[in-house]
Structure formats: C-alpha cells, structure tokens
Amino acid sequence: MTNKLYGVDLHRTFVSESGGATHAIDNVTISIGAHEFVSLLGPSGCGKTTLLNLFAGFDHPTAGHVYLDGKEISAPGPDRGVVFQEHALFPWLRVEDNVGAGKRLQARPAQERREIVSRQLAMVGLEKFARHYPHQLSGGMKQRVSIARALANEPEVLLMDEPFAALDAMTRSQLQSELIRIWSETRKTIVFVTHNIEEAVLLSDRIAVMTARPGRIREIIEVDLPKPRDPNSPNFNAIERRVREILWEGVSSDLH
C-alpha cells in the first residue's frame, strides 16, 4: 500500500498567554495508505482534532512534517475535503449551491457542475432537498450535505472530525452505514476522528488509539473484518474489547 498521508515526528504545542504549554500532540508518527479508512480514537482532549488539523493544513506542527503524496502540507487545499463536527454549511446557499461551492467545481462548465452536484446529492439521498436552505434540514441531513460538499470537490482524502457525534443514535447508525457504502464506492482515503469505540471498529481498517497529555498514539490496531460489519459478532466484540483495554491502560497510566 502506498502512503497517502504521512506525519512524522509531529509535535504541536500550544502556549497560553500566561506561558503555560499544552503538548496537544507529542511525537506522533502515522502513515495512512491510499484508499484506507483510518480512525483516530481517544478521549476528549487527546489531540485528535489537532492532528487532523495538521493534515487539513489549518494548523502547522511545532516540530515534524506532514505529507500528502510525498509533498509537504503547508496549507488547506481542495485535495483534502473536510467534514466538520458542526456541519459548517454556508447558510446563505441552497443545498445544491453548498454542494457545488468547491473551487474545482466552480471552475467547470455549469452543466457539468450540475450533474456532479446531483450525483453527489443522490449518493447521500438528498436529491429532493436540493433547493432547500441548510436551516430547513435536520442535523443528520446537514451532515450528509456536508459530506456531499466535500466529495463533490473531488478530493483525494476525506478528513472527518467527529462528524456524527452530535447526532441521535438512530441517525448516527444510518450515517455510519452510508459512510461505509460511500467509502467502498468512491475508494477515498478517509481519516475519521471519533471518541466512540464501536464507531471506530465498525468503520475502520485501522484504528490509531490515542492517549492524552501528552497526546500520543498508543497503538495502531488493524480491524481485519469484512465490511459492513456486525457489531454483535464475537470477532467484532473481541476487537472492541481490545481497543477498550488499550484505552483504559492509557487512562490508568495517566493516573500514576
């Protein structure tokens, strides 16, 4: 498998005005293969968002380097689509215009753009809502539009920061299955941040289990089960248990 994303010896330290330093990311090295689905899993505050923002180019490492296809990442770009926790749709644009808002799409002829937009909307099951404004949609629908918007701009990588955390259990599990379907249809490389163990095991090829203060990757676990997965199968539960143990080890070693 070729490396799509590569972060090496990454540190990100936030210095507060009073001079206190937070080592949000401390010595993290991670490589993510093309078409791979990797989750960053860990408790709140362990640096998941910080790490994702380095890949997105929203933020720069204090030390270390991040690469996309061997080229150093220095800024955000259309090659990396991002899905935010708070949907971040443009309230003044209709659903179809949100999905078509990407710069790559805007550069295309209008007819072509319309086709891509309706294809993306169909993929997330929202063709009928093309003319709606974001505030007229439910939370789950907004997140679908947000996924469609990121994909429509034809990125190579999809970075998702707890995209389903704010949704109710029903909607969340619906979107999880849709994401598995989308991933297998588009073969995008996906980095998915979550603090939910079951979600990580359900979706990922590999799970990077992180610990807090300093934020580190404790272990990377392969989930070698065919998708879609059955959360009630013994294999699934065994992996879940292992992930939980690693997470707990991290927490209890923090206490010493």
């Binding site: 997105a56 800024a75 955000p76 991002v82 935010f84």
Partner: peptide, 23 residues
Amino acid sequence: DPVLIRAARMLGYATSWELFTRV
C-alpha cells in the same frame, strides 16, 4: 464564524478576496 472560513479554505479558496466574497 471561523469554521466557515475553514470550510471555504478546504474547498480551495485561499486569497483574502476569495474568502471575502465567498464567506
């Protein structure tokens, strides 16, 4: 809202003028 600025940046908009007119 800074998250809207980030959304525009990840969609490929980079200059102040683009961010101003888009967001």
